[in-house]
């Protein structure tokens, strides 16, 4: 019973919302659109994972700014772990997107604005992790990786903003294709879509929380040795 009493309300909410999005996502009726058909259900997973990822990356940038103004190891840990979990969500979002693309576009990878944007996002954060890995001293690591994180995040947002203007896209919502957002999504879809975003975001924060605890335990074990 102690285990249940100490679990916070938002973790329970995360489980409920993610379960709701999976069950509701597969069972509730969706609008019948040309080309998309039943694959529109991917909105509940692919798009929400990406939303959650972008929010996690934004949190990571905010904590990088905090690290620069106030170099506590706590701020740096949050910045690093949100980037880690964001990267994990990004890979999941990429895989779900690729499976979807195979059934609607006919190939796992097409030369498209959105797929390329994804690849760049992942590359930037892999570079961030490589940078973190290359520095031994923890204070220096916090400072330098925070600088790169801020710089790269701003460039990434710009990149995602510029790219659609430079190239046309096949992705729903661009170039006259049926969109997942805006007018094509009816109210029953919204009822699953928005809770699903919150659910995956909370799940991500939970994972971040666990990773930070794991770090603390490891530090303690190392100190004891």
């Amino acid at each position: 019973m102690i285990g249940i009493r100490t679990i916070s309300w938002w973790k329970i909410l995360a489980i409920v919302l993610v379960l709701y999005s999976i069950i509701g996502g597969f069972l509730i009726d969706v609008p019948k659109l040309p080309i998309l058909h039943e694959t529109i259900r991917n909105t509940y997973f692919h798009v929400t994972l990406w939303f959650a990822m972008m929010i996690l990356m934004a949190i990571s940038m905010v904590y990088s700014i905090k690290t620069l103004s106030n170099p506590l190891s706590k701020n740096d840990e949050i910045a690093a772990e949100t980037a880690n979990i964001g990267l994990f969500f990004g890979i999941l979002g990429l895989v779900t997107g690729m499976i979807w693309a195979q059934f609607t576009w006919g190939a796992f990878w097409v030369n498209d604005v959105k797929t390329n944007g994804t690849a760049i996002t992942l590359l930037i954060y892999f570079a961030y992790l490589v940078l973190r890995g290359s520095i031994e001293d923890s204070e220096k690591k916090a400072r330098i990786s925070a600088v790169y994180n801020i710089f790269a995040f701003v460039m990434l947002i710009l990149f995602l903003g510029i790219l659609p203007r430079v190239n046309d896209s096949l992705h729903p919502g661009n170039g006259g294709n049926p969109a997942f957002g805006n007018y094509d999504m009816d109210n029953t879809m919204r009822m699953v879509f928005y809770p699903s975003i919150i659910g995956y975001l909370l799940l991500g924060l939970w994972l971040v929380d666990n990773r930070i605890r794991l770090r603390k335990i490891n530090e303690q074990l190392e100190a004891e040795e």
Binding site: A127, F151, M155, F159, I162, L163
Partner: peptide
Amino acid sequence: SILSFPVLLPFFLT
């Protein structure tokens, strides 16, 4: 090169 390739892409494509 690891750090700059992904960040240079907005410039590159434009």
